[in-house]
Structures are given as C-alpha cells and as structure tokens.
C-alpha cells in the first residue's frame, strides 16, 4: 500500500522572483573590487565565484567548520555567514593577502615547517583564524590555543601540528 507526498510544496504556488543584481564595492587585501551581484550572495561566494579568490574555502556553508574564515577589520569571521553587501567599506583580508609563496607570512611559514596540514583544505581558514586569534591576544597557553582554535575543523586531524605552529609564532620575540 503506498501513499503520496510532495517535496518542496511550501514553494507552491507563489515563487518569488529572484532579487535584482546591484553593484557592491569591496576592499579586499587592500584593493577595491567592484562586482555585480545579487544581495543574497555570501561574502564567501563573492570571493570564490565572482572574484576568483579561491583560497578561502567552503566546507559546510553553515558556519560549522571555519574553512571560510577571513579577517574583516582584523577580526576573524565565517565568510559563509555574512553577505557580501554587508561588508562594503570594511577592510577584508583573505589568505591571499597574508603572504605569497616566495614571501610567506610567519604563520604560513610555521604551518609549512610544522607540517600543520595534510590535504590543505582547512588550512587557509586555520591560518586566518590563527592571525585573528593572535590579534585578540587572549591565548597565552597551549590549552588556550586549543580552545580558541576550536572553531576550525580539520578532518585530517592535524591539530597537534597546527597548535605547535601557532605556539612558535606566539612565542617569537616581537621585532
């Protein structure tokens, strides 16, 4: 004996038209970028799909994994949980803005030296999050680093080395 059901029936019959595109100006890694996007575009998708800044990763799209972490006015946020249009006028730093392959940021260098990643997919988010955490200045001990880096998942399980890499930078004498 079978019954019937309908998927997505809440959308029926009125389907709202999609929103119109608009111009959004974002300041990313010190450069102003203009793009034509719908207002429902997340900052994450704006970076990856419209600006070809694919260093910022999508791991869940729900603010649960931290792979999309970027710095907005120096503060770490999940770029999947913010709309691009909300960040006009803000200073956005992505992994591409921290260093280059020939001129690595100290945290990027520490991640390489400590083998603080395997597949590399969560890595940009881990590094941006670590930069943000060091700026916050609250983490002083290993336990505090572990706690305050717990918003960034790593399925390869590189946590031991991630914490060592961050500790090295935390303990570096300030120039």
């Amino acid at each position: 004996m079978s019954t019937t059901t309908t998927q997505a029936s809440l959308g029926h019959p009125a389907i709202a038209p999609p929103p119109a595109l608009g111009t959004v100006t974002l300041k990313i890694n010190g450069v102003e970028r203009q793009l034509e996007i719908a207002p429902w575009t997340t900052l994450l998708d704006a970076l990856r799909e419209y600006l070809d800044l694919t260093g910022t990763k999508k791991g869940c799209d729900h603010g649960q994994c931290g792979a999309c972490t970027v710095l907005v006015d120096g503060k770490r946020i999940n770029s999947c949980l913010t709309l691009a249009v909300m960040k006009e006028g803000a200073d956005i730093t992505t992994i591409e803005g921290l260093g280059t392959e020939t001129n690595l940021h100290p945290l990027q260098q520490a991640f390489v030296d400590h083998d603080a990643f395997q597949c590399g997919y969560c890595t940009p988010g881990q590094i941006c999050s670590a930069v943000g955490m060091l700026t916050e200045g609250k983490a002083k001990t290993t336990a505090e680093i572990r706690e305050m880096m717990s918003g960034n998942l790593c399925r390869c399980g590189a946590y031991t080395n991630i914490v060592s890499a961050i500790e090295e930078v935390l303990n570096q004498p300030k120039a």
Partner: peptide
C-alpha cells in the same frame, strides 16, 4: 617539508 606546502598555505 612538503613541496606543495607553500601552495597550500597561500591559497594557491
């Protein structure tokens, strides 16, 4: 160190 390390830590 991993030879692909610099590419992975820079988003490249």
């Amino acid at each position: 160190n991993r030879v692909d390390g610099p590419a992975k830590v820079t988003g490249g």
